[in-house]
């Protein structure tokens, strides 16, 4: 249902939430030369759209995210509107919590001043963190810390939620649970989600649109919009879609 509601917004030519054109992005090397990490990469994100960026590890996905969120401004190209003016919730590959602040303080700190005093109990409960609000991050397992990072990212109801492989190095059950949280948070907030992953199955299960990136340097090599509504994406369906994608894009073969 929700996917059917969201898709037309992009198709109808409504202005995108954010749009980027990365002509070239280079990383300096210690010997003074530079290596091209991204070239001619165009990306559009509609309001409320859930997009997955898929590509092999180390292909420049994180760099693309950093540019899109305004953390990296040293590139040729543009991002519109300026991400500095966009409310963004960001989940990094590691939880990146402040170890000297409790779970609750970690979340509160990222909220705008006026919203800092709001009751966080419903949010903590929604992420299964009700018992951990006063804990310091060192007392949490990786799975719990990831949940805190996710709760922090959605707490301010950002227009754009950006996730950088938020489920790596979690066991299958914890990852599945966290995926449910992400999906629900996205549906509740109505904001757009951009998630980087190298797991095609995950992307097929969650996204409105998949963007495939090639490597060295990163560029868009294909896009795909799953037809089935999210509730209808059974493991069988995901597997069939993955096989057909892998047939078209050999680089996905081993994912």
């Amino acid at each position: 249902m929700c996917c059917n509601r969201l898709k037309p917004m992009l198709a109808a030519g409504a202005p995108p939430l954010v749009e980027a054109h990365i002509a070239v992005k280079r990383h300096p090397r210690p010997d003074g030369t530079a290596v091209e990490v991204v070239r001619a990469l165009d990306l559009r994100l509609g309001r409320g759209e859930f997009v997955c960026l898929i590509g092999p590890s180390g292909c420049g996905k994180t760099t693309t995210l950093r540019i899109l969120t305004g953390l990296d401004r040293d590139f040729e190209g543009w991002v519109r509107p300026d991400p500095a003016g966009l409310a963004i919730g960001l989940v990094f590959q590691e939880p990146r919590l402040l170890p000297w602040r409790t779970v609750e303080e970690n979340i509160r700190l990222t909220l705008p001043k006026a919203a800092r005093r709001q009751d966080l109990a419903p949010l903590l409960a929604a992420f299964g963190l009700a018992a951990h609000g006063a804990s310091y991050p060192h007392a949490l397992s990786l799975g719990l810390a990831r949940r805190v990072a996710l709760a922090r990212a959605v707490a301010g109801r950002p227009a754009l939620l950006v996730l950088d492989e938020p489920f790596v190095s979690l066991d299958a059950r914890a990852a599945a649970e966290l995926r449910r949280h992400v999906r629900r948070a996205a549906e509740d907030s109505g904001g757009a989600v951009l998630m980087v992953t190298h797991d095609v199955r995950e992307a097929l299960a969650l996204a409105d649109r998949l963007v495939l990136l090639g490597e060295h340097p990163a560029r868009v090599i294909g896009e795909m919009m799953p037809e089935a509504p999210r509730e209808a994406r059974t493991p069988d369906w995901v597997e069939r879609q993955r096989a057909s994608l892998a047939a078209r894009y050999p680089m996905l073969q081993d994912t």
Binding site: T69, L71, A84, I88, L90, F92, L98, T110, R152
Partner: peptide, 10 residues
């Protein structure tokens, strides 16, 4: 890393 987090959350 924490610096980047702080920048991301403005």
């Amino acid at each position: 890393e924490l610096d980047e987090m702080a920048a991301a959350y403005r």
